[in-house]
Design a protein around this nucleic acid. Structure first.
Length: 592
DNA sequence: GCCGTTTTCGGCCCGACTGTTTTCAGTCG
């Protein structure tokens, strides 16, 4: 059970910070979450309203004169608690309740349609304690078969979470990019437009972004900024000048448009793509070369003469560099590499030839095996690796041995009907707390591949987690390590582990590392990919798809792979069907 | 936990609505 840590002291008593009414209200909520007698929590709500009505000053007076107990709605118990609160500034009962309930549950209560009973049920049955965990559970269809829940509730919760996120100010890359592209297309409809491009963190494929940056060129900047601020999807204009406008979109995200002249475009695009660290390093370099760079151009220091650049390639070349793709512009060594013409030749979306890590209705996927296979066939994939959950993932309808056997049979039959797609029979096996896998060896060895993943006991201490993962990686049947750190973006930190040791164990055992492309995971982190590449490890970009639409997430995975300097050769599922089948067979020979 | 007595414990506001369930539970206002 999760316990909330001691609240950090913000100075002053809990009373000064929150007010008596707020505290009573919170007690009411916590009692409901704990499943107490509903009339008891109602008594606290009612007392909270009463206290709100009489006001803090009057409340203090009544307490000092011991007349509070005469107020209707305040009986002996609440009277006693308010006395303690007013006279000492704190309330033991409240502090104790708070410690027994994860504070994130209050966040979940903000989801429209979720009250204390349902939140409590989610906590009891699925151990959900945060919005991010709730969202993930919905995406994996965990709520569909939960008593009192269903598909519709799950969809509504997802909508509700999105609603809350809108106002939190940080967005998943995939969602922000989707909105940015809509905006981009709208701007392209401006009649006197020169050029326009995404810029900023979205262009750099950061996994989390705060806003949308766009750069455009035109001879009529004032008209373009006005056009931009008057677009129908703009909810609010934050700033509006002749060359720059900031707006908030209906979806809550902010968007900045910077407008320059046509001959300034390439410089501005580079400048507003960033990162700040990349730009700083580049300005430094320019200065050493007797040049100056800013959003308006590249100039010779001695006479302020412009160095003409038609595009970003010209700009980099003028600085003695090869073109640096936007994803790499983080001052992570890209400038040094570009100087030596040693930048990687980054993987492209079209390099992906097949997909691993797909769930079906056998466990918690939304689509049947046949729907998945047909979809892959339509997409032109050469192979698809089916991997439903294993038996101890009971929350996800994990497969018992006999279910696995049945699925194997169905796959055999389907292979005849879909000869153009290699249907690989696998499983996503839970890594148990001791590092063992979830089926007997004989069962695992019959499969074409095994993804080993941690799904529970995420907060294990570091040394144990290292041992757990390293032990799992040493199992000869393991083909891939699924979502290696278990982080959820905007919601859950990585498990504690020594990532280099885990990578080394994967290398020693010939295990492929998954780059889980689910937008909330993007696990592995791009910051680790460079190390992985240098170690000579192989990565597989897996959508972890629970529905057909999620196959699209593979693109996000490719974006992150690019950001992590990966080339086609570093990624397992860029290989042909024959190569992949060959690899899996050779693993098999080793296992058997 | 409060109230109001039937002075010691039983009742506590409720209707619309949704979604799940098939007669009801939970949320919202």
């Amino acid at each position: 059970m999760l316990l909330v840590a001691e609240m950090p002291s913000l100075g002053g008593s809990v009373l000064e910070r929150e007010g008596a009414a707020k505290i009573l209200e919170e007690i009411g909520i916590m009692l409901e979450l704990k499943g107490e007698n509903p009339f008891k929590s109602r008594a606290y709500y009612s007392a909270a309203r009463t206290v709100e009505l009489i006001g803090e000053e009057e409340l203090e007076r009544l307490v000092r004169e011991d007349k509070l107990k005469d107020v209707k709605g305040i009986g002996s118990a609440i009277n006693k608690k308010l006395k303690e609160l007013i006279l000492t500034g704190r309330l033991n009962y409240y502090e104790e309740l708070k410690v027994s309930i994860p504070k994130e549950l209050f966040e979940i209560l903000k989801v429209p349609g979720l009250g204390p009973r349902k939140v409590s049920a989610l906590y009891e049955m699925l151990e959900i304690t945060s919005l991010a965990e709730l969202e993930y559970a919905c995406r994996e269809n965990r709520l569909v078969n939960l008593k009192g829940f269903g598909k519709k509730t799950q969809d509504n919760i997802l909508e509700g979470i999105e609603f809350i996120r809108r106002y939190q100010g940080r967005y998943f890359y995939s969602e922000a990019r989707r909105l940015a592209i809509i905006l981009l297309h709208k701007i392209k409809e401006f009649p006197a437009l020169g050029e326009v491009s995404l810029a900023g963190s979205i262009r750099r494929c950061r996994e989390i972004v705060k806003d949308i940056d766009l750069v455009a060129s035109t001879d009529h900047p004032d008209r373009l900024t006005r056009y931009f601020t008057e677009l129908p999807l703009v909810a609010e204009v934050i700033a509006h000048g002749d060359t720059k406008a900031s707006v908030r979109l209906d979806d809550g995200i902010n968007a900045d448009l910077r407008v320059v002249t046509k001959d300034q475009f390439s410089y501005a695009l580079h400048h507003f793509t960033g990162s700040k660290e990349h730009n700083t390093a580049l300005r430094h370099r320019a200065k050493n070369m007797g040049l100056k760079i800013n959003e308006y151009g590249l100039f010779r220091l001695k006479d302020e003469e412009l160095v003409a650049c038609r595009d970003e390639t010209d700009l980099f070349n003028a600085l003695g560099l090869t073109y640096i793709p936007p994803e790499l512009r983080e001052n992570y060594g890209e400038i040094e590499a570009a100087e030596e013409n040693a930048l990687p030749s980054l993987i492209e979306e079209d390099d992906i030839r097949g997909i691993f890590h797909v769930h079906t209705t056998y466990s918690d996927g939304l689509n049947t095996l046949e729907e998945v296979v047909r979809h892959c066939s339509v997409l032109g994939y050469e192979y698809v690796g089916i991997s439903d959950h294993s038996q101890s993932a009971f929350y996800a309808g994990g497969l018992k041995e006999e279910d696995l056997a049945k699925q194997h049979e169905e796959i055999e039959a389907m292979r005849e009907r879909y000869p153009n797609v290699a249907i690989l029979c696998g499983v996503e096996s839970d890594i148990r707390a001791d590092g063992s896998l979830d089926y007997p060896d004989a069962v695992l060895e019959r499969l074409d591949f095994v993804i080993a993943s941690v799904h529970s006991g995420l907060r294990m201490e570091r040394v144990k987690m290292n041992e757990r993962l390293i032990h799992a990686l040493s199992h000869p049947a393991v083909t891939m390590l699924g979502h290696p750190t278990n982080r959820l973006l905007l919601g859950r930190d990585s498990s504690l582990l020594d990532i280099e040791k885990v990578f080394q164990a994967a290398l020693d055992n010939g295990v492929i590392l998954e780059l889980n492309a689910s937008p909330a995971r993007l696990d592995l982190d791009w910051r680790h990919l460079k190390m992985i590449r240098e170690m000579g490890l192989m990565v597989s970009i897996n959508p972890d798809a629970h529905r057909l639409e999620s196959f699209e997430d593979t693109r996000v995975g490719v974006a992150i792979a690019r950001k992590g300097w990966l080339e086609k050769k570093d990624v397992f599922n860029t290989r042909s069907r024959r190569e992949v089948e060959g690899h899996l067979k050779s693993r098999h020979a080793r296992a058997g």
